[in-house]
Computed example of a mutant assay.
Amino acid sequence: MFDRICVPTDGSDAAAAAFEHVLAVAADHGATVHLLHVADTTRDSVTRIGGDVVDVLEREGESIVADAAARAAERGVEAETAVRQGGVPETVAAYAAEVDADLVAMSTQGRQGVERLVGSTTERVVRRSLVPVLALRPGDDEVPYPYEDVLVPTDGSPAATAALDRVLPVAERAGATVHVLSVVDTGGIGIGDYVEADVLSGYADDAVAEGVERVEAAGLEAVGAVEVASSAARGIGAYVDDPGADLVAMGTHGRTGAGRYLLGSVAERTLRTAPVPVLTVPVGDEQSSD
């Protein structure tokens, strides 16, 4: 359940499209959206208009969040607005903490195009955020909400379990089916590494069984699957395409060593490529270690 959603916006078409999806989530949960525009302090923005010295980026930001608040009001969603100066990732994370947000929701594309945000700002927000981040790609406004199928990749780590537990109330509210997926990553396995492949498959089977048990204990429909792919991210992407998912939820740390890894950097690659919204759930390093 979400009560306070921090929504960074730069006024771009991509941010506006993502906001429609966020408003659907907020309306369903009865949440307040906290609209934030970050005026980039790396740009010279002070100028004189008439007899007044003004910051044009702050003035532009005030207009952007005011327009977004008006759209929220049309949907019956309560909104608060703020304009801050600073670097985007750290300012977003700090503001989310300031308003005690339980979710950050943001587009993965901004005014400068996909290269500015994907692999950059969104991922840096995910690394800094102490609360889950819902990353929305252009076109995600077409994804149905409430979600019908939620995909939770797992490697059996505490981070994967945390992501599953965090998304279960969302799935329950929507009546969604929860798909628990473990990917056997064959990218680092050479010819003759059959023993290692068997070990990885064993980890995957156990992780899926544990996840399915948690889903069913919550009274939800569960589907368990183990897929083999040349990388975890590719396996996740293939599953999103077929049999399909409306949301991917995953932790931001995961298993390493003998069990390889599924989360962490894989979460970042999934953010860049998944054609549906991705919910990342932060877990401290001390919790994600075996």
Rank of each mutant, 00 (worst) to 15 (best):
D185Q: 03
A225G: 00
V199C: 03
H253Y: 01
V178N: 03
A26M: 09
R166H: 15
P138W: 03
G284W: 07
G156K: 00
L200V: 04
L35V: 14
A69N: 11
A70N: 10
G175T: 10
E58A: 08
G30N: 12
T186D: 12
L168I: 12
D10W: 05
A24P: 13
V150H: 00
G61M: 01
A66Q: 08
D55S: 09
H21S: 14
M250W: 01
E115S: 14
G244W: 12
L168S: 09
L279F: 02
A225H: 01
V223N: 13
D205E: 14
I49L: 15
V240F: 06
A274I: 11
A232D: 02
V223P: 11
G187M: 02
D165T: 07
A135Q: 11
G139S: 06
T32I: 06
E210Y: 06
R166K: 12
F2R: 15
A162F: 05
G11A: 05
S201R: 13
H37R: 12
E216W: 07
R269T: 04
A160L: 05
L130Y: 04
R214K: 11
T47A: 15
A17I: 07
A160C: 04
S45M: 12
D52Y: 10
L164K: 13
G188A: 08
R272K: 00
V152D: 06
A162N: 13
E20A: 15
F2M: 14
A17H: 10
L36Y: 10
E62F: 01
V54H: 03
T47V: 14
A101Q: 05
V228F: 06
V83A: 02
A197C: 01
T273C: 02
A274R: 09
H34T: 04
V281I: 14
A105T: 13
V223C: 07
T9S: 08
V77W: 06
E268T: 09
C6Y: 04
D246Q: 01
E268C: 00
H29W: 15
E115C: 08
I64G: 00
D149W: 07
V38D: 09
D165C: 03
R75M: 00
G187E: 11
H179E: 01
L271A: 01
V65R: 04
E62P: 01
V143Q: 04
Y239K: 05
T42Q: 14
A27C: 07
C6R: 01
L130P: 10
E210L: 12
A14G: 02
A94W: 00
M1S: 15
V215L: 04
L262F: 05
E115Q: 15
M106A: 15
R173Q: 15
G254H: 00
V283W: 11
E62T: 07
T256W: 02
Q287S: 14
Q109L: 06
D55Q: 05
A135F: 11
D290K: 13
A258C: 06
T154F: 03
V114M: 12
A69S: 11
L279W: 00
A93W: 09
G51K: 10
A159P: 03
T186S: 12
A17F: 02
A249P: 06
E227D: 10
A79D: 03
H34V: 08
